[in-house]
Design a protein around this nucleic acid. Sequence first.
DNA 1: ACTAGGTTTCCTGATT
DNA 2: CAATCAGGAAACCTAG
Length: 239
Amino acid sequence: MNGQFRNHPVPQQIPSAWSNFDLESNAPGGYPGGSWLQTPPHLWTKYHVWEWLQHTLDANQLDANCIRFHDFDITGEQLCSMSFEIFNHVTGPLGPLLFSSLESLKWSNKFLQPMGQPLMVEQRDCQGKEHQSHKANGKKHSPRGTHLWEFIRDILLDSEKNPGLIKWEDRSEGVFRFLKSEAVAQLWGKKKNNSSMTYEKLSRAMRYYYKREILERVDGRRLVYKFGKNACGWRDCDR
DNA sequence: ACTAGGTTTCCTGATT
DNA sequence: CAATCAGGAAACCTAG
């Protein structure tokens, strides 16, 4: 009973509009929302800021509860203008970590190069720590990046390309409904290179999110889910 | 080699 | 009846 029987063909019913989207998403960090790494921090949108924050917490194995995401409803420009003191004030014990992460990105040679500027810049952040220098090449870890709930969120947010796969039931409350459950499951499976993904299995993974409060239970309504307090980046104003 | 988190797979039973 | 929902258990996979 293990994954030996995985790669058998499955009827392809993925709407064509999504084929491209999905191919893109197989590129490292290339899902439709992973672009903060390719963008200098001061040009980040609010959404980029969310992504950076989430990625940094993730990379340091910190729970999203550690932070009040609401305090980061700001653009990259605003973020970059925050002083170390402000960071500490807003994020408490995580201030130093976040500040130094941002500082590293600001000074990443990836963003310093384009205009023929210094190649190697010594990394010293405002606290005298001596970080980075290793993976300044955006490669970082976990190119697999997207978790299921983010994948779902991104489909919802990309309404122009979303050919009726999932639909908002209550946009402001974060309630949504699967319209084509099996098609979404196949898309997810395609992303994970698993052609035997089904809605039955996908939904089990969704139910695990209740405990982590990434999703809230919506009972009585089939195929309906609701984003919980630990899901971020889905609100209109986050974009 | 080992570990933890995040699924994936399977299953039984309840609901719609 | 078929499709979903609920979770427990255990296998899997991958970054660290």
